Computed example of a mutant assay.
Amino acid sequence: MTQTRGAVEFRNVQKRFGQFTAIPDLSMTIQPGELVTLLGPSGCGKTTTLRMLAGLESPTQGQILLGGQDVTRLPADRRDVAMVFQSYALFPHMSVIQNVAYGLEASGLKPGPARERAEKTLSLVGLDGLAERLPAELSGGQQQRVAVARALVLEPQVLLLDEPLSNLDARLRRKVRTEIRDLQQRLGFTAVYVTHDQEEALAVSDRIVVMKDGVVAQMGSPRDLYEAPESEFIADFIGEANIISGRILSVGGAEARVDIGGSVITLPARGLGEGPARLAMRSNAARVRNDGPGVTGTVASSAYLGDHVEYEIDGALGRIFVVDDESDSPLPVGAPVTLELRPRGLALIPEAQ
């Protein structure tokens, strides 16, 4: 199967609905062969952005380019894109092979060649032997793969995925997201993926675009967003960090010595100078100890979850959420603890100063 590749570019795109401005001014580029996820809370503009790229909504102003071609005013059926919907949107009265071949036949390809291409695409997504089944005879994950196959068989420049896993249970979501990512990397197609699930975005993306109120709050690799958030919003939204206060004692080159609740840690300075600072603290950034040096606190709540213990700790940093994967049994509520901080999982937030 030959897969085309296309770059996607938004140039100063604005979208208004009456007096409401959903997208004030969006400019970004998605490179050929890249999987970029649009992530954000409800109402942030991610689905509107996807729908404008698909041709289901028209920008109020600005340009959208696909593979170098201005498609801003082209209707959906004249854009070289294909979409996988949240609801799958399979034809219930058609077999799997008929569903996958439908778009090819509707575009004028004869039934024989259309079926041949559909069979090859079903093989790509691991659905050999299921061609004659009806959608109702498939599991949720299999139905999702039929929906992906139906889009891929058209060999679009860009595959659009709108909350594609939201109808699946947690275990199946992990499996199918891995399959989608493996397929995208193997075939090298460009993909734009919309989700509100942070873990899903971290797992499948080359880059993540976090949106807030219709603007790009931060765009970068999953690791960049998780380990180097540029704002408290990003730190809290990607991975649910504790937002804590500290003080930068000194800066030498690219590193800063930071006092955090009495413990001094060396961290990337991120352009900040001496003085008060805000930090993102991931739940695994501290080891929970009965005693010894560290940030003092008291157990406010604890929960044993098999391979780890979750704590809420009251102390010098306020109330924070900590995960301890080294303990066999949880400490009781009210127990005094010290938190041994480790640099991995701690980051200064540039926007905070």
Rank of each mutant, 00 (worst) to 15 (best):
G239V: 03
T21R: 14
L172R: 01
S245V: 00
G261A: 05
L138G: 04
A352N: 02
A241P: 13
A300L: 14
I180P: 00
L279Y: 06
N12K: 14
E34T: 08
L35K: 09
V153Q: 10
F17R: 05
V125K: 09
L172N: 00
Q353I: 00
E227R: 13
R342I: 14
F189T: 03
A254C: 00
A89H: 03
G294F: 12
A256C: 05
S87N: 12
S263N: 02
I265K: 03
V215A: 13
F91S: 01
A316E: 11
P229E: 11
I234Y: 12
P59V: 01
R115N: 10
L317S: 08
T296A: 15
A316K: 11
V215K: 02
P330I: 15
A201M: 05
G18D: 08
G246Q: 05
T72D: 06
A7L: 04
V215C: 05
L159H: 05
V146F: 13
G252S: 14
G126L: 06
L160I: 01
T338F: 05
E326R: 13
G188A: 09
S107M: 09
G262Y: 09
L225A: 10
A106V: 01
G297D: 11
A256P: 02
V288N: 04
I260L: 07
S283H: 13
Q63T: 10
V209R: 01
L168N: 02
R133A: 06
Q218E: 06
L331C: 06
A76C: 04
P343W: 15
L39C: 06
A316G: 05
G45H: 04
N167M: 04
G33F: 13
G239R: 07
Q98P: 01
R11F: 08
A335H: 14
P268R: 12
V36W: 07
V204K: 02
E255L: 15
G126H: 06
D314I: 09
V309P: 04
K46I: 05
L165S: 02
V288S: 06
V322Q: 03
L161Y: 10
R78W: 00
S95C: 09
R11W: 09
L65F: 15
G140M: 11
V251D: 02
I313Y: 11
G140W: 14
L279A: 03
L134R: 09
E200C: 08
P156L: 12
E132N: 10
D236S: 13
R150M: 06
A352D: 11
I313F: 15
P276G: 02
Q3N: 07
A76L: 03
E9R: 14
V264E: 09
S27R: 06
M1I: 13
R171T: 14
A136R: 11
R117F: 15
Q143C: 06
A149E: 01
E232P: 01
V158S: 00
T4D: 12
V288T: 04
P24D: 06
I208W: 02
D325E: 08
L127E: 05
D77M: 07
T4E: 15
G261T: 12
I180H: 08
D182Y: 08
I248H: 07
P336K: 15
Q98A: 14
G6N: 11
L152Y: 07
A118L: 11
P113W: 07
G108Q: 02
V100E: 04
Q61Y: 10
E230G: 14
P336W: 15
A82R: 01
R73D: 08
L161K: 00
